[in-house]
Design a protein around this nucleic acid. Structure first.
Lengths: 247, 247
DNA sequence: ACTAAAATCATTCAAAAACATTCATTTTCA
DNA sequence: TGAAAATGAATGTTTTTGAATGATTTTAGT
């Protein structure tokens, strides 16, 4: 593989994911660690990226260190764009399911004023919806520590009482072969159930999730439309399910 | 996971929750305590957060005044006394139900460290339990505006999946003739169900509720023990059910 | 208020991961 | 063909990490 091509690949991957691991690039380009290291050093001296231990990240703004708020914003930008796009599918009178997760949570502000009913398994989302005065149903279940989501068998049981028009799900892995995947089996069960009870399902995922596969299988790609802002592998996924570009 | 990524996760969580516990971040990032401590010290020196004992907090958190309502509540001391008394009935290994309400919520601090399982229909209580690291199940249902409680038919359905040793309920009216009453029929349904599925039930009520009667009948007085700090009409109620004095 | 127990903390250390550097080999291109 | 450039492996060094230890703070009980 030509040096130019590798550099191109690296920068592309970086612009999508904000940070890349060295090992990741080794796999991606099928070249040695040494080579990737050299590439990263070169690209750094050319000002395209910043090396960090374990890989590289996008360069910070040229003039000044971004403030705390700005950094957060940049991190959230992609999620918000996806969330906003997702919210456009919601019409007055609909009932929707909002899965736990930062991307789906980003949808909440865009629901303001809509005459809808929301079902969710996320405590933070329920709290936000409460503030927005939106009719909200919370499913039962065990409160999971890391994500403040309600999961497990009881959650599934409780969900079966609802039917929604649209379901919006976060996802950790989207892969052509593996389909939609997430690390925790109990969360996977909840997501799976959500897809079952919704008329139409959407998966919200930023570019970093595309091509990834994690432990628990949720569904095949055709079970839900994908809303993302990644161009990468869009074309191949599009042969299986509908893909919405949030840009 | 790359250091940069951890830092971003930490800042993101922090901006959402205002304060984070170290343990929480360990769960979230799946890295060791040591690593998180190092991250926090780094981020602190970079000026992104302030470390506090047990975790970290946003740099400029204007500490919230106790709300108008809280200040106005003359019964706050009484509530705490009742809550503390109620908590003494809970032993390790038990499963308990905590009804939504300020008095039952006051029990939560007294649960710290107990090896129990809690079922609740209250979002605020679930949030507090989350911080205390107590195994928590939330029942499903509609989120009621005024109390942030989950109520209604679906709540009842969802509750039927659990069996608890003890149930602790708030109540608006305790009257010799009318029994236990509460204003909202949907909440009454939930309370009634809780009493059904618990082996032993307790009603927590300050003096202001004694002798009152409100719209919806929950149960007769003998269906639950009463924990109160009122001497008034204690004697007459005692002929019907067990009364615990919290003083 | 005081003491004991528990939780959290800073510090240290060894293992693991990632690193820069060197060098022999392969590729490229004149 | 031969020199320059690029590559990958080998080496020893540095950084990062998680566990262990004891110190410190917080909490609970009297």
């Amino acid at each position: 593989m030509l040096t130019k091509q590798r550099h191109q690949l690296i920068l592309q991957r970086l612009s999508e994911k904000k940070v890349v691991k060295l090992k990741e690039l080794v796999d991606l380009t099928r070249s040695s660690e040494s080579t990737i290291r050299r590439d990263l050093t070169d690209l750094e001296t050319e000002g395209y990226l910043a090396r960090v231990h374990g890989g590289a990240t996008l360069i910070s703004t040229p003039d000044e260190e971004p403030t705390f708020e700005e950094k957060l914003d940049r991190f959230v930008d992609e999620k918000v764009a996806i969330a906003q796009k997702a919210a456009t599918f919601i019409e007055d009178g609909m009932s929707i399911y909002l899965d736990a997760g930062t991307t789906t949570q980003a949808m909440v502000p865009f629901l303001k004023g809509k005459k809808i009913v929301v079902v969710t398994n996320s405590l933070p989302i329920a709290n936000e919806l409460f503030d927005l005065d939106i009719k909200t149903f919370v499913i039962g279940g065990e409160l999971k520590r890391s994500t403040q989501a309600l999961v497990g068998y009881n959650a599934r049981e409780s969900m079966m009482n609802y039917r929604v028009d649209l379901a919006f799900l976060g996802m950790n892995g989207i892969d052509l072969d593996a389909g939609y995947t997430t690390p925790d089996p109990e969360e996977a069960l909840v997501k799976k159930t959500a897809i079952e009870l919704a008329q139409t399902s959407f998966v919200l995922a930023d570019a970093s999730k595309i091509g990834k596969r994690t432990f628990s299988r949720v569904a095949t790609l055709d079970a839900a439309q994908l809303i993302t802002s990644s161009d990468e592998s869009m074309s191949s996924i599009q042969t299986i399910t509908k893909v919405v570009n949030a840009k």
